[in-house]
Design a binder for these strands. Structure first.
Length: 603
RNA sequence: GCCGCUGUAGCUCAGAUGGUAGAGCGGCGCUUUCGUAAAGCGUAGGUCUCCGGUUCAAUUCCGGACAGCGGCUCCA
């Protein structure tokens, strides 16, 4: 079955799902039922009644009945006004809204519609004459089609879950229930898909985070506030230090700013107005000032920039700071390390002239590419442009040229990109780097954002070569993004098998009995003296010695379960031969004690 | 925040139409010094997430809170 047929089949199954739901709950009001990756969903409103997973067996049974019966999919063409009347008479208000949009604008696609009149009826000219419906059995649905000839041709499916979903994606609209299903041509393919899902769960960072003892969550501390164990701290510091050292090599200087600030700072920046509800407030018993926990660092870095007179000769000024910011995210959005309320950003800000924008963007893209190449993580780049909504600030022409510069930089760097309208920050267009987690969900990691608003708001300035006062452009950039989120993706990407340089415990020496302790000391002396150069220079090999009175098999099993990059096995035979048995994921080999330092250096 | 699901020992899980609960691993103790993914025996761990309600009796039923999961919305 090709992609097109599969799509057709999944779409028809969405109708069959709706037909089954209508059979079981005749009062059901239907939204939309599109095809998605691996399956489809249908949005349904049953009023007070709620579908839960306990109803799935009954719905699936009804669907199988419909498939077995083999209703034909019948195409019906209907004048638009007659269709609207049908929706009213059959108590299908959501379909009525869609039909209103079709009549008024000829489309139901939200981004092509004027939001102020979405779903609103019109008496005027129709944009279109007729609409098509598809009917299978007693169920009839507004639909462009095409469909299978008969329900009998539907493949295998499985209802997966039910979730809330706002009608047309608007929070102020009623919430419907979204019934998700997967569907394939054959049972074998469905089983394979479910098996892949099971495999992916083994790489879930929340599962590995517990198994590998990386972080923990405590209800006493609060949701979205992860606590990092010694191993997890080692990991986050390794990647954080790499990010810092890399950016220093690309011309950035470290700065430091406090974690609380007067709220005035964000009123000036514009963040208070836009994100006020998500700021944690801090009360002072000493002064009447209102403080907040900082949700980001750009205004602080701007204050450092403006602390001295700046000449064009100083530009660009590049600051970096890895620090934790706090955002009161909605509780329902929190999850694992991916979305937290204490967010450690490897944040940086460039202050430059408009002439320097292009080269600074290139500098940052090169830096990000180098970093993700080290992690061997493929990324997709998202170019986010402006929406014309009132929430966005700044000069429109400047936005336009900046967007063009971002795009040409991305193309020049040969990056895999896609464009998205309306995702820009309120102060400027941006480039986001998207990484994929274990089950295929994309998450933003690195970001490069142009800002034409904040420098002006804070009165930042420099003097150009003619003695004129100018406003600099600001470029925000985080490479890892949020270290917490980065780790969530990194853990799933590696399955917990971290590269040697980032592994919390890099080497474990496993002894066979207690006759080799002097030989173990010889080995540790070598390890202690090694200086590594990849990907950053450091001189601390993180090793432990497992000399417990346990079987070698058990020691190997445990070290493997901890996903240690290197196991060094030593017994009397190795000691006599001045050798070490080295066990890695690739297999096992014997090396000379004198070759150990070299061997480690080359990992 | 909203919709649905979930919460039993440190971990993974079992269990009873309402009569206060078990296994494996891990921990601890003893024995064992053993060469490639779990040595043997013994032993201690639980307000069955928390707070209310119903009941002679609640871990089990009902309500609420907290937390986790899947989505929606949001994401500076």
């Amino acid at each position: 079955m090709n992609e097109e047929q599969l799509h057709l089949m999944r779409h028809s199954l969405a109708h069959i799902t709706a037909a089954a739901v209508q059979r079981l709950w005749p009062e059901a009001k239907f939204g939309v039922g599109p095809v998605v990756d691996n399956g489809f969903y249908y949005d349904i409103d049953l009023g007070e009644t709620k579908i839960s997973e306990t109803n799935f067996a009954k719905i699936e049974k009804s669907m199988r009945g419909i498939i077995e019966y083999g209703d034909a999919f019948e195409k019906i063409e209907m004048p638009i006004d007659e269709a609207i009347k049908w929706a009213q008479e059959n108590n299908q208000p959501y379909k009525e809204e869609l039909l209103n949009d079709l009549k008024r604008a000829g489309t139901t696609i939200a981004k092509d519609l004027d939001m102020s009149e979405i779903g609103v009826a019109t008496d005027g000219q129709s944009a279109i004459e007729t609409v098509t419906f598809y009917k299978n059995g007693r169920f009839m649905d507004l639909c462009r089609g095409p469909h299978l000839a008969s329900t009998k041709e539907a493949g295998v499916f499985k209802l997966m879950r039910v979730a809330g979903a706002y009608w047309r994606g608007k929070e102020t609209n009623p919430q419907m229930q979204r019934l998700y299903a997967v569907a394939f041509a054959t049972q074998v393919e469905l089983d394979e898909y479910l098996e892949r899902l099971e495999q992916a769960k083994l790489r879930d960072h929340r599962k590995l985070g517990k198994e590998l003892d990386l972080y923990t969550l405590s209800p006493l501390v609060g949701a979205g506030l992860p606590l990092f164990t010694p191993r997890g701290t080692m990991l986050r510091e390794a990647v954080g230090q790499y990010s810092n050292q890399l950016r220093q090599a690309y011309g950035f200087q470290k700065v430091w700013t406090p974690h609380i600030t007067k709220k005035d700072l964000y009123e000036t920046s514009g963040h208070w107005e836009k994100f006020g509800e998500e700021l944690f407030l801090v009360t002072s018993q000493e002064t009447s000032d209102s403080f907040v926990l900082k949700p980001m660092n750009c205004p602080h870095h701007g204050q450092i920039f403006s602390s001295r007179a700046r000449s064009y000769k100083d530009m660009p000024v590049r600051y970096l700071e890895t620090t934790t910011v706090y955002r009161d995210e909605k509780t329902g959005e929190l999850g694992g390390l991916n979305r937290v309320r204490a967010i450690t950003q490897d944040d940086s800000h460039v202050f430059c002239t408009t002439d320097q924008i292009q080269s600074e963007i290139n500098n940052l893209l090169a830096c990000a590419s180098e970093l993700y190449a080290t992690f061997e993580m493929p990324l997709r780049v998202r170019l986010s442009y402006r929406d014309d909504g009132p929430a966005y600030l700044g000069d429109k022409a400047l936005w336009g040229s900046a967007q063009a510069q971002l795009k040409s930089a991305v193309i020049a760097n040969n990056m895999n990109y896609f464009e998205q309208e309306g995702e820009a920050a309120f102060y400027g267009p941006k480039i986001d780097f998207m990484a994929t987690d274990a089950i295929g969900r994309e998450h933003q990691v690195a970001t490069v954002q142009l800002d034409f608003v904040q420098p002006g708001r804070f009165g930042l300035e420099y003097v150009d070569n003619e003695g004129n006062t100018k406003t600099p452009v600001m470029i925000h950039c985080a490479l890892l993004g949020s270290i917490e989120r980065f780790l969530s993706v990194f853990i799933e990407h590696t399955g917990g098998w971290f590269p040697f340089w980032a592994a919390p415990e890099q080497i474990r020496i496993l002894t066979i009995n207690d006759t080799v302790s002097d030989y173990v000391s010889e080995i540790t002396t070598i390890l202690d003296g090694i200086v590594l150069d990849k990907p950053i220079s450091y001189n601390e090999i993180r090793y432990t010695v497992d000399d417990r009175n346990e079987s070698l098999g058990k020691k190997i099993r445990e070290a493997t379960n901890w996903k240690l990059p290197v196991q060094l096995i030593v017994g009397q035979k190795d000691k006599d031969a001045r050798e070490i048995s080295v066990r890695t994921q690739a297999g096992e080999e014997k090396i000379k004690l004198t070759d150990l330092a070299d061997y480690i250096q080359k990992i």
